[in-house]
Amino acid sequence: MHRSTAISLNVLAVAALGLFLWWAEGALDGYKIQILNLIAVNIILALSLNLIYGFTGLFSLGHAGFMAIGAYVCSILILSPAQKEMLFILGEALPLVQEAHAPFLVAVAAGGLAAALAGLLVGLPLLKLGDDYLGIATLGFAEIVRVIANNIPRVTNGALGFKGIPDYANLWWNYGWCVFTLFVVVRLLSSNTGNVFKAIRDDEIAAKAMGVNVFRHKLLSFTIGSFFAGVGGALLASLLTTIDPKMFLFTLTFNVLMIVVTGGLGSITGSVLAGVGITVLLEWLRFVENPVSLGGFELPGIPGMRMVIFSLALICIILFRREGLMGMREITWSGLGGLFARKGGR
């Protein structure tokens, strides 16, 4: 397929998405719109983890930490000084925190940049570690972020967190960032740098022998991934309008990991599809935790059942279909075209 055709098809797809969002904004109720928003945020998070883990082979479990940094930085920037004066009851906010204010776009970008900076600083020492040790160390980093957030009340309002964060993150912002993330990740991975990432994932020693600066590329991938994790966290903060340190437990990383593994490690379209599927499934599974009446009988909801099913699903995927939905394959325009062409030919 010609490059220009693919580009115009991409433009068409974005236009179709825009049209759908415009329709959804008017036609769907608040709950459904919230789910659509969560889908966009989850896709951003899944793409960023897939870049780090699926494409570069760095097993990172620190996503919740980067999200927390993005969320806190963004919230501090979009909360108005008056709101902050009300919020900080454990101790007066530091002057810098009190005064800082920025428009939403800048705030989200700043959240992402802060997370990227953290990713860079953490990556410098940690990326020397391999495999599961890297996982444990990044998990440790995420826990440290959470403990610190709990203990600096003049910046984060301690365990109470923030309430009443302005809900700027509507469909347009979320999907705008989502498309931007998709664009950056796709462009990056189809570039030479992307090939180096994949080479490191497939065989680090061979890549090194070919003269690749393995460490620098690992650091690049980790930093970019952290940036988008921060963006995801920032959008999530504005979407949920309340954050506190408890929100950024390991469960959050687990959810993102689940999406990436389900979609297929090393598949962008897989992450997008699984991002949609898992988000919807997670919402749909809420029914097992709510009381339901079946033929006059009132069945009590079972708290915790949702995560039981969810974790069982992850184990089953790893045991029976390790490559996930898509493996390392992608759905491409030419692939779709081929599908129709073959059908037409028969």
Binding site: T251, F254, L257, V261, I302, P303, G304, M305, M307, V308, F310, S311, L312, L314, I315, I318, L319
Partner: peptide, 16 residues
């Protein structure tokens, strides 16, 4: 990853 899954599974079974 399977181990992480089992950990979450057992924890939530305990919650149930």
């Amino acid at each position: 990853i399977s181990a992480i899954g089992v950990s979450f599974f057992l924890q939530n079974v305990a919650i149930v």
